[in-house]
Design a protein around this nucleic acid. Sequence first.
DNA 1: GAGTTTGAAACT
DNA 2: CAGTTTCAAACTC
Length: 759
Amino acid sequence: MDVVSPELNSLLPDEIMDTESIAMEEELPAEHLAAPPQSEPEPLQVPMETELPEIVSLCPATTSMKMTSTDAQCSTSSGTQLLLAPSNLISGTTTSAKTTGPAVTQNLPKIPSVTVPANHQLIINKLSGTPAVVSKSPGAAVLKPEGQKLLVAGLSKTGQPIMLALPHTWNKPATTQGTGDVKAQPTQIKLMTTVGKPVIAVSSGSQLMGSSTTLQAQQLKTLQFTKKAAVSTAGPMITKLIITKALNNKGLSSPASVAPVVTGRVVTQSTPVTPPRNITFGETISTVPQNTSGNSKVAISPLKSPSKLTVVSVASQSPNSPQKSVTLPLSVALGQQILTVQQSAATSPAKAGTSQSTAQTVKPVQTVGGVGTSQFKTIIPLTTPPNVQQIQVPGSRFHYVRLVTATTGSSTAQSSGSTNTNPSIHPAKPVMMNAAVRMSVPIVSAQTIKQVVPKPLTSAAQVVTTSQTPQRLIMPATHLPQIQPNLTSLPPGTVLAPAHGSGNMGYAVLPAPYVTQIPQPAFVTLTSSSTFSTATPIQTQARLSLNGQLQFTLSEFNLSSHRYCDCFANGEFCNNCNCVNCFNNLDHESERLKAIKACLDRNPVAFKPKIGKGKEGESDRRHSKGCNCKKSGCLKNYCECYEAKIMCSSMCKCMGCKNFEESPERKTLMHLADAAEVRVLQQTAAKTKLSSQISDLLTRTTPAITSGGGKGFLELKRSPEFAADSPCRYGDMAVQSFSGFSIDLSVSSRSPVAKSGTK
DNA sequence: GAGTTTGAAACT
DNA sequence: CAGTTTCAAACTC
């Protein structure tokens, strides 16, 4: 690893907090996404295209070490995923670093490699001789030398940690061995330092992952980690993780919408530090060096709105039996996100660090990213009562709630469920999925989370539906043997999608309103497979097929279509769609239930994502069923394969197929399509720029601009200094619509200002 | 926007 | 499982 001296750092003060340039470097094409880690035995399907989030994560690599530093801080642009090794580990690789404690200088682990997958995740590996990050953080196991690199140097003489954010093009192997010449490419290096704070120090064995929703790539979030010296190596340590949105955060949304969520691990308690807009949280972890203390994974929705946040924590772990870790991987799939949660019981109560509503005490988190092309934001809340928090994202179509784990008596989950003692369960092995899944889980009390057998959604499950915005409850139907026994531990209200069959992956998509508003007698029994036996009959609100797919049909929805309504197929209620006489709403729940049941009986795979992960050795994506084209040559959008921009496979039954790799027709079309896309992008960029200029012009030239009461409107008012009857260039501007990229200014006839249309 | 083509899903 | 029907989306003009 390269060593960045403090001198170098001091010479480049302007580089600090240079978020824009960093953000630019983060822009990676989708094809640069990281491949699944090799440690993953069997990648799961990627049901849908995913708009990938980026991760800021902190991942300690050591198993036991002393932390004498009191504060640690790192800054990174949002969206950049970082896996940071412990400070001592870092310092051991830097010549200029000053260790903060005597224990730190001993047995300094080396960082053999710094690899960055394409998802901008920086992974600093330890030596192979030590318990690697990989073993504890499968998500960090992706060591694909792509993407942006970030080197974390140790403490300087002034105590400033130095982090080098390297462009993704800077992936020479030498850099991973500490022999790279930093100065050789000065323009590609971003230095981020913390002022007056020691370098990031992550407690041993803990896995931290900080993540935050990102509204814009330019957002900068500061992660502050506070550690206190442990009494002994085996003693508790304090780790405080703070994520602070930088002041230059360009996010325009409310705090709830951005709600940076960071996970961390705190051995005991942390001193609350609650600067404005900071989120401080801590978590109690086991002090057993080899104890991974479970892993908690929560994926933040990487969907369109980065503000969407889903936090789920399930399972608990006996503090004294790390190998019996009853981690409950809760994998959720919506085709775009996968959420995996493994959470351990805390040996001591965790303590939230801030009084802010967004403050969270979190469990150790590790990313499940790095699998496939997915990128994850992993968050684990370790909330104190109230154990339920709802995340409301203004403007979002979805509501999210957090499932939190009780901080006390967490060991009951392990002992209560006989299925949890399945030896096949890997203690800390997270369930890795290669697709992100959005998951909205009904709010459940902490105690109910531990219950082995899900109950019908009655009083136990407290689902909050505050608006007509559909909620989704999506659970994985993937065949995941390691988590299957733990599925019985899902909290009441959770819709289970029992894995069944081999490779027949499905997803249970259940709108939350559907869950919450169904009368109890209307429950649809969750069909359990033979391998998914439970002592108690499981009831939930949707009937699931054997492969775990929740299905809906419109046959009883008085719709004249044999096809599924898109809204329905997505597990949503129809809203502002073109459905006629639609029954896919809350007013027709009984009919909807019938439709679901009928559909499940008829076709268990109707809602299965058509484009999924191909078999091993095949291309990443392929049509699950294959097309059946006859006339289009599979080169028109009639063909589902072509429409999905994938080539036809052996599954297809098409005739005259031209949608294969070497097809000249296909290549020609692709070239044309690419060219067209480039043009569209250029035009869009031009429009955006022009609109921005116009808007800026209006702002600067208009005497007064006040936001109108309506949404997305600008009200242009006459400035007081202009008399009502005086000639005024802008005097007759009325309220104009300001929608999207278009600004249409209507100017009165006596103000012959040229209209500006950007469309 | 209307008409045509197409193929997936439902149906038999 | 194969053939037929239906119909919304894609496509063309």
